[in-house]
Design a protein around this nucleic acid. Structure first.
Lengths: 187, 187
DNA sequence: AGTTACATGTAAAACGTTACATGATTGT
DNA sequence: ACAATCATGTAACGTTTTACATGTAACT
């Protein structure tokens, strides 16, 4: 999947590994991310498959950098991926939920502390997404020339982040309240 | 992480790999899942670490089965994990969002078809979670003797699934509508 | 003097999926 | 006859993370 994310960005313009990492961090990080070393490996394997071509650019006073450009093969691969529908929903892994599920034998305060911390973290993330505008995504994301539909879709992914964080905070608050009132009933 | 999930279940009672898979499918699958072969591998490595002990049980007319029991070392490991707070939020990977992000250069109908399909799938999942009661979770989950707090926490994880699916459907409908009205403006 | 930004990579480990292999019993 | 349930595993492959290694320039 990472390969398609990289091809997706390279389809706008040529980039190096380091830039791809930065662009992902400022645009897709709430639903897709990757480590730098993973990006470098993926780029190599994309080149081996003929989906991209690279050229080494020498810089004085800065490390050399390798520029990647998408090929026709790569564009085909990207289009095929975009066009083939997902027939299942994605299964998530949420460590916090797993902990909650098994926290019954512990002191309720142990899990309450963790839930309150997560609530604060999610509130920060919500504030971050809410303060971001489509223009920010456009600029940070790539300084790519984006047609009108792109902007609608990018805004939609930002909106997904906001809805997700709001939902998460609602759930955390509900859960904290329900554990607290259980404790109150006990004492 | 899978290791702690397994220890969590084994802390209620002894189980074999096959049973662990079934229990996960009927209780934690909306926030944690694992493949059978992965479970068998994890159990072996848990045994090597001294967190569980196993014994082979011979059955006539059924395959032999290997029963796993948690040890004190395993209980310690589980408690340590439960007690150590998560200081970050979990980063998710959502292939659909990634596709949406890069679908701007395609025919809008291509992504609309996919979004409508996902909406149907999420509606099915919502119906499934909504129809499930705490008692179902209790029974399917393990036929474990669960104290009152466990039930509250299990119900809370089920509730997380419901909120998540509702949020997802809301987002899908918003996104479908916004792409549709963009297309209408064009024509 | 220490950190961050720039820039690329290797090596090892951990984690996860898919396919294969076996084999009896029960239900359709 | 065919598929599903029970039950365990190996092998190969693919993905992801973490740690290490290098080196300059700018900022604090």
């Amino acid at each position: 999947m990472l390969k398609y994310a990289l091809l997706g960005f390279l389809n706008y313009r040529s980039l190096n590994g380091y830039e791809l990492k930065q662009i992902m961090e400022s645009s897709t990080k709430n639903f897709w991310h990757a480590d730098l070393s993973q990006i470098y490996k993926a780029l190599k394997s994309l080149e081996a498959e003929g989906c991209v071509v690279s050229s080494l650019e020498h810089q004085s006073e800065r490390p050399d950098r390798r520029n990647y450009e998408i090929t026709e093969v790569g564009q085909q691969a990207l289009h095929n991926w975009l066009a083939s529908p997902l027939t299942t929903t994605s299964r998530m892994k949420e460590e916090l939920l797993l902990k909650v599920f098994f926290s019954g034998q512990l002191n309720p305060e142990t899990i309450l502390t963790q839930l309150r911390l997560q609530r604060d973290l999610h509130q920060q993330q919500l504030a971050h997404y809410s303060g971001q505008t489509v223009e920010d995504v456009e600029q940070n994301a790539s300084s790519l020339e984006a047609p009108a539909l792109d902007k609608i879709l990018w805004e939609s992914t930002r909106r997904a982040g906001i809805l997700y964080e709001k939902m998460y905070i609602t759930w955390l608050e509900e859960t904290i309240a329900s554990i607290e009132s259980h404790g109150a009933g006990e004492s």
